[in-house]
Design a protein around this nucleic acid. Structure first.
Length: 551
RNA sequence: GGCCAGUUGGUGAAGUGGCUGAACACACUGCCCUUUCACGGCAGCAUUCACGGGUUCAAAUCCCGUACUGGUCACCA
């Protein structure tokens, strides 16, 4: 009886040895410095903000070095797998325009290192596991859930470290004969890695984000192949795939740091060169006084669909994440406004190594800036696209009044200091609804008058203004001068300085009078430039609104 | 509990022994500009870098200890 017999018993169909795959997956022809990165999510639902954050880093690392970014679907956990999730992940990457150059979609493999779905790579993993068994570095374990549970209890009681290691690794000591016999008897088993490490021994490791680390060696005989579906665990699949797919840099969350010794020992057992690791800080959120990982279940903003639903421009979302990734990104971006974010040189070393808050307020601010820099036509297009999915009523209005809407969005826009009214696309309607009669008329109007609230006085101001002063063709200065004339005629101060010096001499000032007009026309006391609003609405509609108010 | 990591303002953070009397951005506050609101401009906002000790002429930066926070300890990734 030899290890080889055991290996053949477990994997009778595997004929090739591991060198076979070195023929298939040749080293990539990389120039000096080119990086190969990957995004490797498990398809358990919508893409998570933290995952997306890592995908951007992967993408940056690859683009910065003119390297390769690929996508691998880690679907070894069929229990938690969610239908369509893998498609959703691709859709999100496509939506944000950070597409990998190698991936698998609808069963179609794009790239030479596939398949890129782990469940399709079973035979590969089995070949490598078989090899490990042959060289005596892996063995079957027949411990049941109950056995393990009991072992853990004992360890806790006796204040030992929990885990399957050293004297606690029961099945490691089984004889070859017994192993073979129990398998032949049809007993359930997993395959465990046989660790040679010593927990008391530390080794130094340089992580690209965290810097120098001191970690204990792994001594656990962790599971590398599951019993039911014979798929590998993450630890094993990671090592094999990133070796075969020639990943140079592994970007993953820092929750993986503690299992790094396992991975490193596996790489060593195969005599593979390990990739470099970029362990990114977790995205956290404040809850009361404590801080916790941002969670899909509790936080709507943890799911990438949130940003699409709200209508944040893609650029804004990426920019917000980039400022967390490297805080000097903002300065770079203001200095190079026309450049694409991928031109920025990302540096893992400059990344904060502690948990980062994703600040929605900051996102709002970035988003305002992004939208304020767009041309009116672009706002129209983006908004229109958004409403198709989220606001059909508004979509119809946009269709009906395309030219007009573009002009509305252009109020105080294409100028040196554009307004920053719009936070995101879902917010625009709240800002411009009064520019559309359809929306204005059905609105339950609350007129927000400020200083002048007497209805008769308001009527008087409106009537006299329309009769004697309003002219559709006036330019802005003439328009304002006429408002001032109106003030003089009615006993309001047309000059603010004069008013401030002698407030008692006047009934009010030009601002108060403007506010009256503004509120009657829009119901709001705060709007963009009244002149432009009136010009767009036109005489007829202004009159209609005045009479609507009076009735 | 073991192991690992982190701790600079309300937030993201710059910072690797003297150029920091702690950048920059967001938020906040005040003033100015002004037909409102915004925008913009100006100013303010950490006498101090979790705490305690040490090294040094000099420490947020190096060392030790303490506290707190987070991660991990699955046939989940």
């Amino acid at each position: 009886m030899t290890n080889k017999d055991l290996a053949n018993l477990i994997f009778p169909d595997i004929k090739q040895d591991i060198s076979y795959y070195d023929e298939i997956y040749k080293p990539r022809e990389l120039k000096e410095g080119q990086k190969v990165t990957r995004f490797a999510p498990s398809p358990t639902g919508f893409i998570h903000l933290g995952g997306f954050f890592q995908a951007i880093i992967d993408y940056m690392l690859a683009k910065n070095s003119d390297g390769i970014f690929y996508l691998r679907n880690e679907d070894t956990d069929q229990q938690r797998e969610v239908q369509n999730a893998s498609q959703l992940i691709i859709d999100t990457l496509r939506y944000y325009d950070i597409m990998p150059s190698e991936y698998e979609e609808n069963g179609k493999i794009i790239g030479n290192y596939g398949p890129y779905v782990q469940s399709e790579r079973k035979e590969i993993y089995h070949t490598f596991i078989k090899y490990l068994i042959e060289i005596g570095r892996a063995y079957p374990c027949f411990c049941t859930k109950e056995d393990l549970e009991q072992k853990r209890k004992q360890q806790e009681e006796r204040k030992f470290r929990t885990g399957y290691y050293g004297i606690w690794s029961h099945c490691r000591k089984l004889s070859l004969e017994e192993q073979i016999e129990r398998i032949k008897n049809g007993e359930e088993y997993v395959i465990r890695f046989k660790s040679l490490g010593n927990f008391e021994r530390k080794f130094k490791y340089d992580d690209l984000v965290k810097g120098r680390l001191e970690l204990p060696e792994n001594d656990e005989d962790f599971v590398i192949m599951k019993s039911d579906n014979k798929l590998p665990t993450y630890h094993f699949a990671h090592v094999i795939d990133d070796y075969l797919m020639k990943t140079t840099h592994v970007v993953r969350g820092e929750e993986w740091l503690s299992s790094l010794p396992k991975h490193l020992e596996l790489f060593k057992a195969f005599n593979f060169k390990a990739p470099k690791y970029v362990h990114t800080p977790l995205l956290v959120k404040k809850e009361g006084n404590s801080v916790r990982k941002i969670s899909k279940r509790k936080d709507p903003e943890a799911t990438m669909t949130y940003y699409k639903d709200k209508g944040y421009p893609k650029k804004a979302v990426i920019e917000a994440l980039m400022t967390i990734i490297n805080s000097n990104y903002e300065q770079w971006h203001t200095a190079n406004p026309e450049k694409n974010f991928t031109d920025f040189q990302y540096s893992p070393k400059k990344m904060s190594s502690s948990g980062a808050f994703f600040d929605l307020e900051k996102l709002d601010n970035i988003s305002r800036n992004v939208i304020s820099k767009m041309k009116a036509e672009e706002v129209y297009q983006e908004l229109y696209t958004w409403t198709k999915e989220y606001d059909l009523e508004f979509k119809e209005l946009l269709e009906k009044y395309k030219e007009y809407s573009t002009q509305v969005f252009n109020i105080e826009r294409e100028q040196k200091k554009p307004r920053k009214d719009y936070v995101n696309y879902s917010d625009i309607k709240n800002q411009v609804w009064y520019m559309y009669d359809e929306l204005f008329e059905k609105e339950n109007k609350k007129y927000d008058f400020q200083k002048i609230t007497d209805k008769e006085e308001i009527k008087k101001i409106c009537t006299i203004y329309m009769d004697k002063y309003f002219n559709e063709n006036d330019d802005k200065d003439t328009w304002f001068n006429k408002i001032k004339e109106l003030c003089d005629a009615l006993g309001y101060a047309s000059n603010m300085k004069e008013y401030k010096e002698n407030p008692d001499r006047f009934k009010g000032n030009v601002a108060d009078v403007s506010t009256v007009l503004r509120v009657v026309i829009t119901t709001r006391s705060m709007t963009p430039d009244l002149y432009e609003i009136m010009k767009l609405l036109g005489k007829e509609r202004i009159e209609k609104r005045i009479s609507l108010f009076e009735s």
